[in-house]
Design a protein around this nucleic acid. Structure first.
Lengths: 354, 354
DNA sequence: TTTGGCACTCGAAGACAAAGAGTGCTAACA
DNA sequence: TGTTAGCACTCTTTGTCTTCGAGTGCCAAA
């Protein structure tokens, strides 16, 4: 059922007006604000059809119409035109991201923060998936007897470490020997292929009782595995409280309750992300993933939209960044903001890696 | 102006009742719920005096009384009796804290989380102040040319590290030499005494051009300095939305806005903490710091109380942990919860350090 | 000093009406 | 056949008024 031009136009202005006023838009107000060259009665009958198609709906009989989830979807998919960001917005974002940082994670945090500030919504960023990175170095640094810092270096220069406990009487040398063995056996292997078995079988003839050795190797294994862990940075949740969409306390509460569960959000976005990454056809560099209202199967997100995109470190590392805002948002503006943040982030990444 | 026993009793039940009902308590309701053996008229005149003393107040003429900030203060200082925690509460807290962790920071996070869950309020924890710890080790681990992981080990076995960039053409050996020099020059020195000057003057005759050397040393210095940084873990902010005290959107918004600024809260609590630490007379192990309503000079905290206490790692490291709740809270219960969390945290710390 | 009684205050809650925006439907029109 | 004007109807919003009740302050008597 392709929409004719007039229906498209009407849907578009319904969305536009509703987004900017947060008031259901009626036939009369609509023709007053936009010159459609038709009467309100015509608009009414068109609206009735749009409603039949499930694209708009009325909160109650005598109110105007508001876009339904499917209406927003249609708008986003084919009615919206993404415009360029104003110089001012660019400046604000650039300055927030380009603050000098040493660690990649800080850079990602800054980018997410810039996004939250410039959109006025909540933002999120997920550190890159590292499953397919491979191990390049593994060092074990004795801090004191029984306590070792395991440093894991991955192919893209990513460094992760973990403090672990090992049997007290192992010497510096023994530990160094173990880590060298593990490193030489596993370096070049993708993280996802490293298992407890490959780790334990990487050390032979160590002259150390098996049980002790295995303890150390187990810790080494956990250190390697946790390098794979995704971190999520969720910021600006409180900004959602300033939106009229969440003026109702119960809505605000539900939203923030869910939002407080980092892990759940990370898992959800991660899945979204994976879809696109695996679906090569769709992975054009500039595409955002958009989930609107009920499309997000999380409690309290009925009035929200997720807009996320991917960023890259080098050629292989892929993470996500995006916003969580009200579904009643200026999609085109937010998309261009995200896009700009993504690009700025990439640039800064490159600088960081010289 | 010491209160006579009856006034004390009345103030006490006003607080108790108001805390449990969130309704201004009137003279009649008061004598009905508690057998004071006096008439409501007597209570009324007593209340009028308590009001004159600034301990209670009325929201409006024909309502009951609610405690003022000073009323809560009086209650907390001399009317309240801290009772023991129920076995059930203990179990809940213990199980949340004793989840196996490797890092001290996770333990602290768990403790803070347990506090938030068991109180139903927001909680915070601040990592220990390390200014007075001294450096025991400094290692620089070459990750790749131009990229070095600086590992700082402090007296209490605390390990911090930072990835830094150095000139590309410095060799493994040169870096090792530099770090060894710095370590031997500075180990044993308290963090607060380490300055850029002490760091740079610790390496002599390095056979490396000064400008390069200084770059490396500067990075080493920043790595050491950032070991001193306080981290704050703020959790369960969203729980505040479920309290009737913050049903008004504007209050909730203001509170969460301020709460979203970790740094500000950290700074504030840090100051509170320092006061008590420096004031030896008051640093009895079990004391909580309590700040009520306007005593907290932060925007949006008029209806909140801070209750914080200190925890120790070993004998010297002192951090803070506490809750941010509505000032209309069961102080005695919360205090015993914090106290129990603190003790459990200490126990687990010991286990972690064997 | 305590108490019962009483007039008074003020907010909460409910009822009701008027206003206003918007709808659907129908009949007429180009 | 698509468009439009007109009209009755619906439903929320807003404001006003009233009632109800809990609570107060004050006073005179015990």
């Amino acid at each position: 059922m392709p929409l004719d031009d007039r229906k498209k136009k009407i849907l578009q202005v319904v969305v536009d007006d509703y987004v900017s006023t947060y008031e259901p838009v009626g036939s009369k107000a609509l023709i007053e604000r936009h010159n459609l060259n038709v009467s309100s009665a015509t608009v009414r009958s068109e609206m009735a059809e749009l409603e039949k198609l499930g694209l708009i709906e009325k909160p109650h009989t005598s109110a105007g119409r508001i876009p339904s989830d499917r209406g927003y979807r249609e708008y986003v998919d084919s009615l919206m035109h993404v415009d360029n960001l104003s110089d001012n917005d660019r400046k604000i974002i650039t300055s927030r991201i380009s603050k000098s940082v040493d660690e990649v994670s800080d850079l990602i945090k800054n980018a997410s923060n810039a996004l939250s500030i410039s959109t006025g919504f909540a933002s999120l960023a997920i550190t890159p998936r590292l499953r397919r990175s491979y191990l390049t170095q593994l060092k074990m640094l004795m801090i004191e007897p029984g306590k070792v810092l395991v440093v894991v270096v991955l192919s893209e220069g990513v460094v992760k470490d973990k403090l672990v406990r090992i049997p007290n009487f192992l010497t510096d040398k023994q530990v160094a020997m173990i880590s060298a063995s593990v490193e030489s056996a596993l370096s070049g292997k993708p993280l996802e292929e490293i298992t407890l078995i490959t780790v334990t079988s990487s050390v032979k003839n160590a002259n150390i009782p098996d049980s002790l050795l295995n303890q150390v190797l187990y810790e080494a294994y956990t250190a390697i595995k946790q390098a794979d862990k995704l971190d999520i940075y969720l910021q600006g949740e409180h900004r959602m409280l300033s939106l009229p969409d969440f003026n109702e306390m119960s809505k605000a509460r539900e939203l923030l309750d869910t939002l407080s569960d980092d892990g759940m959000i990370a898992g959800y976005v991660n899945e979204l992300g994976s879809e696109v990454i695996d679906d090569k056809s769709n992975s054009s560099d500039n595409s955002c993933m958009i989930r609107i209202g009920q499309e997000i199967a999380l409690e309290g997100f009925d009035d929200c939209s997720f807009i996320t995109t991917t960023y890259k470190i080098g050629d292989t590392l892929i993470g996500n960044i995006g916003v969580i805002g009200p579904k009643r948002m200026e999609y085109s503006k937010v998309i261009s903001q995200i896009d700009f943040v993504r690009n700025t982030l990439s640039d800064e990444m490159k600088k960081l890696y010289e």
